[in-house]
């Protein structure tokens, strides 16, 4: 089980290194989105800054994760089917996308503060929240990508499926990130929100592992 997970993650990383155009494509997507934004909204207030940041994360994730199942052709999926357990396969995909999205989140946060300004009062805390957010968003969209891949490889479908499902998580994240803007929370509220997000992530992983085997059999 563990060996197959690591092998699959390694394979995805190797594929990424060999086909670097998609990786740079996403980086370019991040850079151009933030550049366009910086030209249209110079120095937004804290609330708008926070909102725009999370919406950007959402779209980056759709683009970064979209290809994870779409790139696997029918034949290759059949090959995996003979080799590994479906739970191992989905866990490997979740892990890989998590790492990818983590990287993209950090890069986008860096560019975002550089181009659009930095109203944060506690940057370390916000980095932590961005990491947590990147993980959560990538988990949901990995499963959505697996579903959308079944439907004629449609990336737009993935966004339609994912947005209503991600909404509660996104609201939680936006609420939590207000603590990094010096907003005073009730005692224990920050911990509670963080706990809720982590709990939701655990739920998503559990459901992905339970439900994926059904998607996988044809």
């Amino acid at each position: 089980m563990f060996t197959s997970i690591t092998a699959l993650v390694k394979k995805d990383i190797l594929l990424e290194l060999r086909q670097q155009h998609t990786f740079y494509g996403i980086l370019l997507y991040i850079a151009s989105t933030i550049f366009v934004l910086s030209l249209s909204v110079d120095e937004p207030d804290a609330k708008a800054w926070n909102g725009i940041f999370w919406v950007i994360q959402l779209f980056i994730c759709v683009n970064a994760v979209a290809k994870s199942f779409l790139q696997e052709g029918r034949g290759r999926m059949l090959y995996y089917y003979t080799l590994v357990h479906p739970a191992a396969f989905i866990v490997a995909k979740l892990l890989y996308n998590l790492v990818l999205m983590l990287f993209m989140s950090i890069v986008s946060l860096l560019l975002y503060t550089l181009f659009i300004g930095n109203p944060l009062s506690n940057i370390v805390q916000f980095i932590g929240i961005a990491v947590l957010g990147g993980i959560s968003i990538s988990l949901v969209f990995t499963l959505m990508s697996a579903i959308a891949a079944k439907a004629q490889h449609n990336a737009a479908l993935m966004a339609i499926l994912g947005f209503p499902v991600i909404l509660p998580l996104l609201l939680l994240l936006m609420r939590l990130s207000r603590t990094a803007f010096n907003e005073v929370f009730k005692e224990g509220a920050v911990l509670q929100l963080t706990g809720l997000i982590i709990g939701l992530d655990a739920l998503i992983i559990a459901m992905a592992v339970i439900l994926f085997p059904y998607l996988w059999k044809d």
């Binding site: 579903i147 499926l161 499902v165 909404l167 509660p168 609201l171 939701l200 459901m207 439900l211 998607l215």
Partner: peptide
């Protein structure tokens, strides 16, 4: 098969939402 998977996932998330939203 695919729509059943989606609807199960989405339904669970929807009912989790019911408890989360009042906190946000």
């Amino acid at each position: 098969k695919t729509s059943a998977v989606y609807s199960i996932f989405a339904y669970v998330m929807l009912f989790v939402t019911m408890f989360i939203i009042p906190r946000i």
